[in-house]
Every structure is written in structure tokens, then in C-alpha cells.
Simulated assay, not measured.
Amino acid sequence: MFWELIATVFAGIGGAGIALFIRTLSKKKAPKWLVPTFAGLAMLGFQVQGEYSWYDHQKSMLPTGLVVVKTVQEEAPWRPWSYIYPQTMRFIAADVTNSAQNKIDPDLVLVDLYFFERRHLAKRVPQIVDCVQDARTDFTESFNPSHLQDSHWYPLNENDPLLTAVCQKAG
């Protein structure tokens, strides 16, 4: 985030420089307010471009085997352009390559989900996916396979991308 702030300041300096160049070409006939206006627009434009390119950039850096299973697009009143074109601010990726099928019950698959959010560190959350019951549950250090039915299962739609990605590999 620090480097993003530095880049934003330099975008503002660049915008102000363009306005100063325009004033020089016009022999100072262009209005003075052009300089702060160009600086502000350059900084705003840089931030908007960064917001919209974040998801594609993060997705391109994912290692092979991580599959995006959900994206979350957001709109906000302080970003009025997001009502026209919502921004992807969060997404979830499943580590399909390193998922493991249960040896006793092959319908159960252990998979790591990675939660990515703009300006936050990624979080890893291990999950157990039941490919037959179309459900998932949290896998913790204190997880006891003999108490599997006591776990809180979250239902998934049968066409859920997590089921599709994990259960196709398991099957």
C-alpha cells in the first residue's frame, strides 16, 4: 500500500507536469487552475485503474492448480462509477491440484481455499467438501473424522464452482 501511495503522488506530479507544459505552450494563457485539476485527475485515474486491474493482476499471479471459484463485485457511493461497472474487490480460489480425497470415504475431499481481498493479505482456510451431499465444512486442527456428522455443513448448489472444480478432480 505504501508503494501505491508513492505511485499515486507521482501520477499527480505527472498530471501537473502535463498541465504546466500546456501552460508553457499557450504562453501562460491557459488558466492556472489547470495544474491542480490535472494533478487531481491523474491521481484519481491512477487509483481507479488500480482498482479495476487488481483482480486480473492477482488472478494472473496464481500458481497452476489454483482455480477461482467465486468473485465478489462491489459498488460504493464514494465510487459512483462502480454502479455502472462494479469492481471485483474479493475472490476465492481453491487449490485443486493439492486437494486430497479421503481414503475411507472417497466422496470427501480436503481442499484449501484462499481468500483474496484488495489491500489485505490472502487467507488460507482448509475445507472438507462432500461431493455427494453437495456441502462443505471447515477443517480445523481439532477436527475429528469420527464426528463428521456433528460438523456444521454448509449446503452448496449442485452447479457450485467449488464442487465442479474439486469433485471433477476427485472423480
Results as ranks from 00 to 15, higher is better:
residue 3 W to Y: 12
residue 4 E to D: 13
residue 4 E to L: 11
residue 10 F to V: 10
residue 11 A to F: 04
residue 16 A to F: 08
residue 23 R to W: 02
residue 24 T to R: 12
residue 25 L to E: 04
residue 26 S to D: 04
residue 28 K to G: 08
residue 30 A to S: 09
residue 32 K to R: 13
residue 33 W to E: 11
residue 33 W to V: 14
residue 34 L to M: 11
residue 36 P to R: 00
residue 42 A to Q: 02
residue 44 L to C: 03
residue 48 V to D: 01
residue 50 G to L: 02
residue 52 Y to K: 07
residue 53 S to L: 11
residue 55 Y to D: 00
residue 57 H to C: 00
residue 59 K to L: 11
residue 61 M to L: 14
residue 65 G to R: 06
residue 75 E to Y: 02
residue 80 P to W: 07
residue 80 P to E: 05
residue 86 P to K: 01
residue 87 Q to C: 02
residue 88 T to G: 05
residue 94 A to Q: 04
residue 94 A to R: 03
residue 96 V to W: 00
residue 97 T to R: 13
residue 102 N to V: 00
residue 102 N to I: 07
residue 105 D to I: 04
residue 112 D to L: 06
residue 113 L to W: 06
residue 116 F to D: 01
residue 121 L to I: 09
residue 123 K to R: 15
residue 123 K to S: 10
residue 126 P to F: 08
residue 126 P to N: 09
residue 133 Q to A: 15
residue 134 D to H: 15
residue 136 R to C: 04
residue 138 D to I: 14
residue 140 T to N: 13
residue 141 E to P: 00
residue 142 S to L: 14
residue 142 S to G: 11
residue 144 N to M: 10
residue 144 N to T: 13
residue 147 H to T: 13
residue 147 H to D: 14
residue 149 Q to I: 14
residue 150 D to Q: 14
residue 158 E to S: 11
residue 170 A to V: 09
